[in-house]
């Protein structure tokens, strides 16, 4: 175990080409999917949290259900849609990074929507009453609401990114964990461990844990700043 960790650290320090390729693919998939999820989820979450309309409760329940969707179910859905017998087979997206990103967007967006909705619905009534009482128009009220959401947006993004980078079920099913093409950190750890190559698995695990630590430190700092 000790020697494996030593070898793994040496592999990281040597900037191994395969390791760099896996890291690059992971960064591309996770960053792109989390940014797209943020761009979709933040406006929807703010809208759900701030507005009262018929059917809002049902939408919130549907979103909460999607927040708990198992990644393998998401992967299975996309596999069926894009496989050789699926309705979208002509797009030839199965086992590509593009489809991995789409699958992750579907997985992560409900998390962004849910977190934003919870935050906004908590502050929106009091904010609306005060801002309306001051005679502020819709535009100014919206800008003030956005200003209130700056830190929550950052922390929601970090959550989304953490979920994306640690996700394995969906990306392995739709990406196929093809070496030098669609292999990301989590799928590579599984693959190399199955082959008995613990060194690369441990190296990737160390990197993943370090990234998780960084995300959590940033999140804690932001939460402290928000509570100030």
């Amino acid at each position: 175990m000790g020697s494996s960790i030593q070898k793994a650290i040496a592999l990281i320090l040597s900037a191994d080409r395969e390791l760099l390729n896996i890291l690059g693919t992971t960064a591309r998939v996770s960053l792109t999917s989390s940014v797209i999820a943020l761009l979709i989820g933040v406006p929807v979450g703010i809208w759900l949290g701030a507005c009262r309309f018929r059917g809002r409760g049902a939408l919130v329940v549907v979103n909460r259900t999607l927040m708990g969707m198992p990644p393998v179910v998401c992967g299975l859905l996309f596999y069926m849609l894009f496989s050789g017998v699926g309705p979208f087979r002509h797009l030839k997206l199965l086992f590509t990074v593009k489809l991995m990103i789409v699958a992750q967007v579907v997985l992560i967006t409900p998390i962004v929507v849910g977190n934003m909705e919870t935050y906004v619905s908590d502050i929106a009534p009091a904010m609306r009453e005060t801002a309306k009482g001051l005679g502020f128009g819709l535009g100014k009220r919206f800008l003030l609401l956005l200003n209130e959401c700056v830190y929550p947006i950052f922390s929601v993004y970090l959550l989304a990114f953490a979920r994306a980078i640690a996700e394995v079920g969906a990306v392995s099913m739709v990406g196929g964990a093809i070496a030098w093409k669609t292999n990301v950190m989590t799928t590579a750890i599984m693959q190399y461990t199955n082959r008995g190559n613990f060194t690369l698995g441990i190296a990737l695990g160390l990197i993943l844990m370090t990234l998780s630590l960084i995300v959590n430190v940033v999140l804690s700092l932001m939460q402290r700043r928000m509570s100030r």
Binding site: A126, E129, T130, K132, L134, G135, F136, L144, N147, V150
Partner: peptide, 24 residues
């Protein structure tokens, strides 16, 4: 007419006290 209203629990926006006042 132009109506101004101060609710029982007013909201403090995420900015300084002076900037909150200057909002209006």
């Amino acid at each position: 007419v132009r109506i101004g209203y101060m609710p029982q629990k007013s909201y403090a926006f995420r900015m300084s006290t002076a900037r909150n006042v200057a909002l209006n």
